[in-house]
C-alpha cells in the first residue's frame, strides 16, 4: 500500500515536472503539422461554398508558420528554437514543403523563414493612438498551397511521422518533447491508426512523451466535441480511436486554451471532433502554445486587414 502510494505520488510529481523544459537553440523542440490532403478536402467549408476545406487549412497552416517564425525572430535573425515538419497525405504521403526546402521532412525554423514559396503583401488597419486608424503594410508568406487529391492514407502518414520523430529524438533526447498537430476530415483508408498513434505517443524526451493532438473537421454542421476528457460524448468508433491516440493537454496548453476562451478541464485531451473553422484556428493556436507563449492573434489581425 505504501509502495503504491509512493509510486502514485512520484507519478503525480513527474507529471507536474513534465513539459517544463525551456526551449533554447541548444535544446530546440519539434513541431509536426500533419495535414490531410485527400480528395474530400476539396469540399466546401464554413457555409461558404467558395472556400474549400483545403483552402482554409492551408491558410491557417501558413499563419501558424508565420507566427512561429515571428516568435523566433531576433531583430534580423531567426533563432532555431523549433524544427518544423509539414507532412501531407492524400494522393501522396510526404513532406508538403516546396521550393528550396524540397522534400525535406524536418527543417529548422530559420530556413522555413527564409524559403517560403512566396510572400504576399497587404495592409492592416491599426489604431493611430489619437482615436483614428492608420494602414500599415503586412506580409503573408506562403509555404503550403491547398491540395485535395486521393484517399486518406492516415496510417502511412503517421508511420512517416514516427520515423521522422525517432530520428529527431535520437539527436535531441533532452528538452521540450515534439508536438504533432494532426488535422483530418475523414476516416483512415489504410487501416486503424490506433497502433501507430500509440507508438508515436510512446516516444519521449527526458521532459515527457511526444504530444499528439488530433483535429477532425466536418463540412456538415454536426455537433462538435472539443477537448473532451472522456469518451462519453463521442459519436462513433472512429472518434473514439482518435480520442485514444490524443495526448492530454499539459498545463501550459490548458492555459493557452483558457486565454482563447476555450473550455477545458484538467484531463482534457488535445482532440476535436466535427470541428468547424474556428476549431481549426484554436487547435493550431493551442497546439503551438508550447511553454505558454502568448498565442499570436492572427484572426484579430485578419479582420482588420484592408
Amino acid at each position: 500500500m505504501a509502495d503504491h502510494l509512493a509510486a502514485l505520488i512520484r507519478f503525480q510529481l513527474d507529471s507536474l515536472l513534465m513539459y517544463s523544459a525551456q526551449i533554447t537553440r541548444a535544446n530546440p523542440t519539434c513541431i509536426v503539422l500533419l495535414v490531410d490532403q485527400s480528395g474530400s478536402m476539396a469540399d466546401p467549408f464554413s457555409g461558404d461554398n467558395a472556400t474549400k476545406k483545403a483552402d482554409f487549412v492551408a491558410e491557417v497552416v501558413n499563419h501558424t508558420l508565420h507566427d512561429l517564425v515571428i516568435r523566433c525572430t531576433k531583430t534580423e535573425e531567426v533563432r532555431n528554437y523549433y524544427h518544423i515538419s509539414i507532412i501531407g497525405y492524400g494522393r501522396n504521403v510526404g513532406s508538403a514543403f516546396g521550393g528550396p526546402l524540397g522534400a525535406r521532412n524536418l527543417v529548422p525554423i530559420s530556413q522555413v523563414a527564409d524559403y517560403p514559396l512566396q510572400v504576399k503583401s497587404s495592409y492592416k488597419r491599426v489604431p493611430d493612438g489619437a482615436g483614428g486608424w492608420v494602414e500599415i503594410p503586412i506580409r503573408f508568406p506562403v509555404w503550403l498551397h491547398p491540395t485535395a487529391e486521393g484517399k486518406t492514407p492516415m496510417c502511412e502518414a503517421l508511420t512517416l511521422v514516427k520515423d521522422t520523430l525517432e530520428k529527431w529524438l535520437s539527436e535531441h533526447p533532452r528538452g521540450f518533447p515534439p508536438t504533432v498537430l494532426h488535422l483530418t476530415d475523414g476516416e483512415s483508408s489504410d487501416g486503424d491508426p490506433d497502433y501507430i498513434g500509440r507508438q508515436i505517443v510512446s516516444l519521449r524526451t527526458d521532459d515527457g512523451p511526444v504530444l499528439l493532438f488530433n483535429c477532425h473537421i466536418s463540412s456538415q454542421r454536426k455537433r462538435k466535441v472539443e477537448y473532451p476528457a472522456d469518451e462519453s460524448d463521442l459519436p462513433d468508433a472512429f472518434a473514439r480511436t482518435l480520442f485514444h491516440i490524443s495526448s492530454p493537454l499539459p498545463g501550459n496548453f490548458l492555459a493557452a486554451a483558457a486565454q482563447l476562451g476555450v473550455q477545458t478541464v484538467e484531463n482534457s485531451r488535445g482532440f476535436v471532433f466535427n470541428g468547424d473553422p474556428s476549431s481549426i484556428v484554436q487547435f493550431y493556436e493551442i497546439g503551438t502554445s508550447l511553454t505558454g507563449m502568448t498565442p499570436y492573434r492572427w484572426m484579430d489581425d485578419r479582420t482588420e486587414s484592408a
Binding site: 508565420h66 531583430t75 531567426v78 506580409r139 508568406p141
Partner: peptide, 11 residues
C-alpha cells in the same frame, strides 16, 4: 532591405 520577418516584428 530587412527580411519579411524583421519587418513584421519591427511593426
Amino acid at each position: 532591405d530587412l527580411p519579411w520577418y524583421s519587418m513584421e516584428k519591427r511593426q
